[in-house]
Amino acid sequence: MARTDSAGLSTPPSTVEVERGRLRLFAKAIGETDPVYTDLGAAGRAGHRDLPVPPTFLFCLEMERPDPFVFLAEAGVDLNRVLHGEQSFTYHALCHAGDTLTFESRITDDYERKGGALRFLVRQTRVTREDEPIADLGSVIVVQQPEAGT
Rank of each mutant, 00 (worst) to 15 (best):
K114H: 02
E130V: 11
T125F: 00
T128D: 09
T102W: 00
A117Q: 12
L118I: 05
Y111F: 14
L118T: 03
A93S: 15
F103A: 12
L94A: 14
H96F: 15
V122A: 09
Y111K: 03
T100Q: 13
E130M: 06
T100P: 02
L101P: 06
T108K: 01
F103E: 13
V122S: 06
R106W: 08
L118K: 02
T128F: 12
T100R: 15
Q124Y: 02
T100V: 12
G116H: 07
L94E: 15
H92Y: 15
T125Q: 06
F103R: 10
T108E: 11
D110I: 01
R126I: 02
R119P: 06
D110C: 05
C95L: 08
E104G: 04
K114M: 10
E130R: 13
H96K: 11
A117C: 01
Y111H: 09
D99N: 10
R126A: 07
D109A: 14
L101D: 06
L121T: 07
T108L: 02
D109S: 09
R119Q: 07
T125C: 13
L118H: 05
C95M: 09
H96W: 13
H96N: 13
G116L: 07
R106N: 06
R129W: 07
L101V: 04
D109W: 05
R126C: 01
A93Q: 15
R123Q: 14
T100D: 03
S105M: 04
T128Y: 11
D110A: 05
G115I: 04
V122T: 14
L94Q: 14
R129P: 10
R126T: 10
E112I: 03
R106P: 02
K114C: 05
T108N: 03
T125E: 03
R113V: 04
G98A: 08
E104L: 04
V122Q: 08
L121R: 05
D110L: 01
K114Y: 00
E130Q: 12
V127C: 05
V127G: 07
T125G: 07
A117K: 14
T125W: 00
T108W: 01
H92S: 15
Y111I: 01
